[in-house]
Design a protein around this nucleic acid. Sequence first.
RNA 1: GUCAGAGUAGCUCAGCUGGUUAGAGCACAGGAUUCAUAACCCUGAGGUCGGGAGUUCAAGUCUCCCCUCUGACACCA
Length: 514
Amino acid sequence: MTYTLTTPLYYVNDRPHLGSTYTTIACDALARYQRLNNGSVVFVTGVDEHGQKIQRTAEQKQISPQEHCDSISSTYRDLWKSWGISDDRFVRTTDPRHLQLVQQFYERVKASGDIVSGRQTGWYCVGCEEYKDDPADAESPTCSIHQKPLEWRDEENLFFRLSRYQAEIEALVAQDDFIAPASRRQEVRNFVAQGLRDFSISRVNVSWGLPVPDHPGHTFYVWFDALLGYLTALLDDGGSTDLDRLDQCGWPASVHVIGKDILRFHAVFWPAMLLSAGLPLPKKVFGHGFLTREGQKMGKSLGNVLDPEILLERCGTDAVRWYLLRDIQFGDDGDFQQQRFIDLVNNDLANTIGNLLNRTSSMARKWFDDAVPSAGAAASPDFPLAQRASQATTTVSDAMETLSFKTASEAILQLAIAANGHLNDTAPWSRMKQPGEEAAVAEDLYAVLEATRLVGLLLAPLLPDLSARILEQLGQPPAGPDWRDRLVWGGLTSGSELPKPSPVMQRLELDEPL
RNA sequence: GUCAGAGUAGCUCAGCUGGUUAGAGCACAGGAUUCAUAACCCUGAGGUCGGGAGUUCAAGUCUCCCCUCUGACACCA
């Protein structure tokens, strides 16, 4: 069974920010876990490139919308590459294949009788791409979000008959495993319970969009086409763009990971569209929280945005990934605090985990011929550290299945702490000075090295780079498809060579704010 | 305004269906140690669990009222 997961298709109005990076990193961790665990995974990400907002941004920059999209989209693509994101598909909604798919989908929905035309009048905010509730006789109203004047629109639009799917959607959102985290279920349920209204799926006077067949002058509303990007991405496997092939390409998705702001589109509108087109529904929609910085909302006006590129360049991918995944309960809002960021990275990664490897490897090399010592009793799964390791493995697996990256991270850290504690309790450095203690010291060092190997292995989905460095210093290959098998206690071979250790994780030293 | 959620150590948060002296991480203080990336390990201090009333043998955990904060309330990638 293929595990399919998606990030949102990011809107290319502006350069990538930390929020999209956060989502993408989380998805990457999940994708890597599923790949290590099950094998077959399709990890979809991409960009949404249509709409009036983009059209106008391009106009301001005096370039064509396509040039604008090309530029921003490649920024995303490059950024994901430099973060080591393991996406399998990067879809662009300006791809000709996408137009084909959207029109095909539209024909299906139309054939179901779910497209009707209607008149839409009201005050419209281009920034929001939406109609506002201001009364028709309002005098020059402005958008409360964008602080810009609203525009009066009177349009003939096509509508999707969402209202027909009231019962199905109500049943869908009533399922406990569809919307995650649980804390966001109720608001969606309440919304649906109010009664679903049809929504418009086309715009006139927006040239930067996909043309609606048989309705000259109409382009698809960005939301209608953007969601369909997930399907385009899956069909982009070398085969044809044919909706009938979807079930062989990884549809339905196992999970759509999105920001909490667009939960409704994914949990309500999108499933209804799929029902109308006769396609299966995604299994789960996960709406994660937002990031603030030192307690404040990040924004241009405050000038406190964290640029992912700078963050990566100055701190490295492992540090940032660790902080975001380990310190924030995925689903909840999180606050980026520089001091805490530094504290956690240095304590957890450099001191606890990195130093554990360093000290253990050094002792083994010094006293046991640069090699893994004899396991003795430490080969047994009953050895105290072995049991801790097995607990950690179970916790990590359970946690990763539910996107609880924080729980997984903490479990790994606990194993490293237990291993450090074991060293301090058994004090190999003083026992080595006593005659006849060599075999016992060998056992303890073997056990601690083994625990460290498992720490490295368990870290693979979360921090692939650090994981590989740890394993390398234990003479082990990076995590691969045999991940599960290697998670069993006792994988290190006594007598195998240990390379000379060097710190796998540097401490962060940031004098100035990022 | 309506609905939902949250207010627990300096900070970020755990505390499931009510039950011994309320926990963790970070920060802080002290101790121990020297294998190691001035790292690791141990101990400690620190909380009237937003306020008030009630139910109960027993409430952070249930009920009611009040205060504060956050989010949703239709087309916000």
